[in-house]
Amino acid sequence: MTAAVAENVSEQSDEMKSHGASAVSFSGIRKSFGSNQVLCGVSFSCASHSATALIGANGSGKSTLLRCSLRLIEPDAGSIHVFGKSVRELSAGELRKVRSQVGFVFQKHNLVSRLSALTNVIHGAIGQGYSFRAWYQSIAPSELRERAFACLERVGLSDFALKPVQTLSGGQSQRVAIARAVFQKPKLILADEPAASLDPESGQQVMELLRELTQSEGIGLIFSTHHIDHALEFADRVVALKSGTIDFESAPDKLDATELRKFYMPSGSPL
């Protein structure tokens, strides 16, 4: 670990202590796209070392909320704290530093095609002071290459390290994306419908992998999903969004799958 990265982690721990154990907190988040109001004052927080599932129908604001947390989408109003830092008040450089400490797994993995799986994993270090040496595996320091290879091994893809990612299946690509997120040594992983574009078996494997890695590394996890079973099986807490507001939040053992499915019906709410 470089001095710069060690300093980041230490700063991050201090900030977290001063803001309790909350990894992310949202307060009164509003976001509109033209006349379409997607988030209407969402407030909730997620503790570190726990898994939170965001559920809700299409257009309920799950993806927008996750993107707002790293200002990939700028919210119109409200405040967001990540590791105790108010992300809306950060400078461009500070924001990049916070982003480098959070893993983000996208629905369609968003890997750089034509580049190898190993290079894509090494991209996880771009924001951590390695600069151009993390652009390609061929110019990366040995330490990064070894760590990235170990991450690929953990997701079962070390045999595919030098394969261009466009030759991998959807499930394999999503596992590379998870390896890239884990490679960042984050305290938190945000996953936007990580199993949505996968077949049921690959989706289950991806969720199991995410849960196993986050639990073993002590990483917080917030994932959005349409799979009720995934929400109940892999989350410690379920937060339901409806029309841009929080409809309910609960521990999964207090929720019933059949009742929860009604939540997706036009006027249904289980609680």
């Binding site: 990939l72 968003n110 991209h123 771009i126 924001g127």
Partner: peptide, 12 residues
């Protein structure tokens, strides 16, 4: 998509 992913990693 990949551009957004790299942005989320803290890329300049």
């Amino acid at each position: 998509g990949p551009e957004e992913a790299l942005k989320a990693l803290g890329s300049s």
